[in-house]
């Protein structure tokens, strides 16, 4: 069954069209990758899915889990199980990382009819997930993303995903800025998160990530629409031939 259906989505920023009719269906348990050149609208799509303000939807609709996603605000979507791993996670000095994570986790748990975790139980829960991602206690104790390296921030995003247990995780260029060891750690984290209930949308420039997280479907986003879809072999072809043919095709 489809977890997410994007139908003919058109969106603009400051009256400049960015998305020009995106159609995309993701079933529960599937991993989809969206690839494409810079400026093709990949990040815009991820922000629109997660409910960021500042985008005008001019046409089309998004159905998530049977509901109209565009009617929900960002925090509602998150509680309903949508998660965005940011390309550039925000540093928030003065907000303790653990407290933030606990507040978020409990907001989601309450929404799902589960009991809130107290500080002790939560710490145990997080530590279990953190060690798999090579995240130390001292990293957990710092302010949200403050002073973290690019790779540390990406690992923290994956930790947040693991803690919040979303149904749809959107990973926006989670591989960028990662060395090969970090890429492996992050990919292992994502793979262990995969199951038949959870869908993942990978947004990436590079085929490299898809060696580690093998997608069910690969889509090329160019000039604001899906220009081609295929299986994992499409990514290999793109790696070889680049995006130029899609750019030309649209022009």
């Amino acid at each position: 069954m489809a977890l997410l259906e994007i139908r003919n989505l058109h969106a603009s920023v400051h009256e400049k069209p960015i998305l020009n009719g995106v159609d995309l269906t993701i079933d529960a348990g599937e991993v989809h990758a969206i690839m494409g050149p810079n400026g093709s609208g990949k990040s815009t799509l991820s922000y629109i899915l997660s409910g960021r303000e500042g985008y005008e939807i001019t046409e089309g609709e998004i159905i998530y889990n049977g509901s109209n996603l565009l009617e929900m605000v960002a925090d509602e979507r998150a509680r309903e199980g949508i998660f965005l791993a940011f390309q550039y996670p925000v540093e928030i000095p003065g907000v303790a990382g653990l407290t933030f994570l606990k507040t978020a986790a409990n907001a989601v748990r309450v929404h799902r009819g589960m009991d809130e975790l107290d500080a002790m139980d939560f710490l145990k829960f997080v530590r279990g997930k953190a060690s798999a991602l090579d995240i130390s206690d001292s990293m957990l104790k710092r302010a949200v993303n403050e002073g973290f390296s690019g790779g540390e921030k990406k690992r923290m995003e994956i930790l947040q995903m693991a803690v919040l247990e979303p149904y749809l995780a959107i990973l926006d260029e989670t591989d960028s800025g990662l060395d090969i060891d970090a890429l492996k750690v992050v990919s292992d984290g994502v793979n262990s998160f995969r199951n038949s209930q959870r869908s993942i949308l990978l947004i990436t420039h590079y085929q490299r990530l898809l060696d580690y997280i093998v997608p069910d479907r690969v889509h090329v986003l160019a000039n604001g629409r899906i220009a081609q879809s295929g299986d994992k072999n499409l990514a290999l072809e793109l790696e070889k031939n680049g995006y130029s043919k899609f750019m030309k095709a649209v022009e």
């Binding site: 997660s50 409910g51 960021r52 303000e53 605000v73 960002a74 925090d75 979507r77 998150a78 509680r79 998660f83 965005l84 940011f86 996670p89 925000v90 928030i92 000095p93 003065g94 907000v95 933030f100 507040t103 978020a104 907001a107 989601v108 929404h111 302010a143 949200v144 947040q160 919040l164």
Partner: peptide, 29 residues
């Protein structure tokens, strides 16, 4: 900061709670 607000909300934290968290962080110094 609207980026920080969105970041917190994208984790399921309500707008009000996110604002309170950020204000507390602001005064904590």
């Amino acid at each position: 900061d609207s980026e920080s607000l969105f970041y917190l909300m994208s984790r399921g934290i309500t707008f009000d709670e996110a604002r309170r968290i950020l204000i507390e962080a602001f005064v904590s110094e």
